[in-house]
C-alpha cells in the first residue's frame, strides 16, 4: 500500500484518473484508512477548482483595434516575403 508521501506525490494523477487500476486500488485503500490524506486530496481538488476561478484564469481581453493591428502586421509580413 502507498505511504502518505506516495499519496501526496501522485494526487494529481489520482484526481485526473491517470493511475493504472492496481495503483488506483492501493490509493483508494489508503484513503479509506487515512483521514489526513483524505483531507490532503480534498484540499488539492479544492485548490484546482480555485485556480480555475481565480482572476488569473480569465482569458485576456483583446480589443477590435488590437486584432486589426495584428492583421495588418500579418499582411505586411507576407508582403515583405513576396517582395
Amino acid at each position: 500500500m502507498p505511504s502518505c508521501k506516495d499519496i501526496t506525490e501522485h494526487s494529481s494523477d489520482y484526481l485526473d484518473r491517470n493511475l493504472p487500476w492496481w495503483k488506483r486500488m492501493g490509493y483508494w485503500l489508503h484513503l479509506a484508512m487515512c483521514v489526513h490524506c483524505r483531507r490532503y486530496v480534498d484540499q488539492l481538488k479544492l485548490t484546482i477548482d480555485t485556480i480555475g476561478k481565480s482572476p488569473e484564469a480569465t482569458t485576456p481581453n483583446v480589443s477590435q483595434e488590437e486584432i486589426q493591428a495584428i492583421v495588418e502586421k500579418m499582411k505586411q509580413s507576407t508582403k515583405n516575403k513576396d517582395g
Binding site: S3, C4, K5, C37, R39, Y40, L46, T50, K53
Partner: peptide
C-alpha cells in the same frame, strides 16, 4: 512534515473555507 516511515507527522489542517468562491 513526514515521519521516517513516510506517513504524516504534521498533517494538513482543516481550512476555514471549503468552496472556491469562499476562498476567493
Amino acid at each position: 512534515r513526514l515521519k521516517p516511515n513516510a506517513h504524516w507527522a504534521s498533517p494538513p489542517a482543516m481550512w476555514h473555507a471549503d468552496t472556491p468562491d469562499a476562498l476567493l
